[in-house]
């Protein structure tokens, strides 16, 4: 079984993680002296292949088919399974995205191999030449380094914003290979019957330079609106802990953490957030974390650069107002 060669990236055209995967993929391929390929599945996506070469891929396999327009597990697993059997990669990297979280385990089981999900560090062991896959577990309280000793490919899904993309280099050359999907509609056992995309207003949370996030300690949906004011002043976006989303204070799309979004802004203002590990996994890469919390023992103060120990209700209006004055 131990006959794989090359690093393969499962690219998603709409996700910036693809460039991060190519970045880490390039360095793993260099460590192994093996090539880096990228596979993209979709409909009407061929134009984007050149860009993947500019960001580091040696070859790009494009599987362009109307049946692949939306991610649907049955179609994607079938195509990726066949591709892996044909190209026999040593390593296969996917993003820890909605599609990646669904696809990676299905594909791994079909290939009879293992996968480490939600990795935030990847390296090649110089002795064994195995992929060292480091990931969070226990809600982020513990980290584990895992290997897949025998089965191939060695598969990992990678958390957003943990790997650096390469600078775009349009002078890079590489081959674009068009492949047939080789599937028909009969392979789809499930069917998307209704679908809509929420239209984002203002700054996208994942891309925001400043994120103002609230926790369950905010106390209610109305209180959460105060965070909107601060976010507007700081030209940022509003996020929330899972507890705040579950309590109905904030929409699910605002959730930051292990099962939500990953953000890495310049400034992360955590208001009434205790800082549970599963939340911190979604924001710990922020450049500066600021915490406002009335509990001096809250974990968030172990992670924050600046903090105020007080009830946010008494701090936030003055803080917001002062920020407004300073930024005028």
């Amino acid at each position: 079984m131990n006959d794989g060669r090359g690093v393969m990236v499962f690219g998603e055209v709409s996700e910036s993680i693809t460039y991060e995967l190519l970045g880490i993929g390039r360095s793993l391929a260099a460590a192994l002296g093996e090539p880096l390929s990228c596979v993209v599945l979709g409909s009407g996506i061929r134009d984007q292949a050149r860009e993947l070469i500019a960001f580091g891929a040696d070859t790009v396999s494009v599987v362009d088919d109307p049946l692949l327009k939306d991610y649907q597990a049955d179609a994607y697993v079938t195509v990726m399974h066949r591709l892996c059997q044909e190209q026999r990669p040593n390593i296969l990297l996917l993003g820890q995205t909605i599609a990646g979280r669904d696809l990676a385990p299905r594909l791994a089981f079909r290939l009879h191999t293992g996968v480490a999900t939600d990795c935030s560090e990847l390296a090649i062991d110089p002795t064994s030449r195995l992929l060292l896959q480091t990931r969070a577990c226990y809600g982020g309280n513990v980290r584990a380094t895992v290997v897949c000793p025998d089965a191939r490919p060695q598969m990992a899904t990678v958390r957003a914003k943990t790997m650096a993309a390469l600078a775009r280099d349009d002078s890079r050359t590489g081959d674009v290979i068009d492949l047939d999907a080789g599937i028909d509609a009969s392979c789809l056992r499930t069917r998307i019957v209704d679908e809509s995309r929420e239209t984002a207003t203002g700054v996208r949370l994942e891309d925001a330079r400043v994120v103002v996030a609230g926790g369950r300690g905010m106390g209610g949906a109305d209180a959460f609106k105060q965070l909107d004011t601060l976010a507007t002043v700081l030209k940022g976006a509003v996020g929330a802990s899972r507890a705040a989303c579950d309590a109905g204070y904030a929409p699910a799309s605002a959730q930051i953490g292990l099962t939500g979004k990953v953000v890495a802004p310049t400034l992360y203002v955590a208001v009434a957030i205790s800082g549970a590990s599963q939340h911190m996994t979604g924001c710990s890469r922020s450049k500066v974390i600021v915490a406002i919390n009335k509990d001096p023992a809250a974990n968030i103060f172990k992670e924050a650069r600046y903090g105020v120990v007080a009830d946010y209700r008494e701090v936030l209006p003055a803080f917001t107002e002062m920020c407004r004055e300073l930024l005028e």
Binding site: R191, D194, R197, A252
Partner: peptide
Amino acid sequence: PDRYEVVEA
């Protein structure tokens, strides 16, 4: 996140 999706299986 940011999407509404209903799947029939």
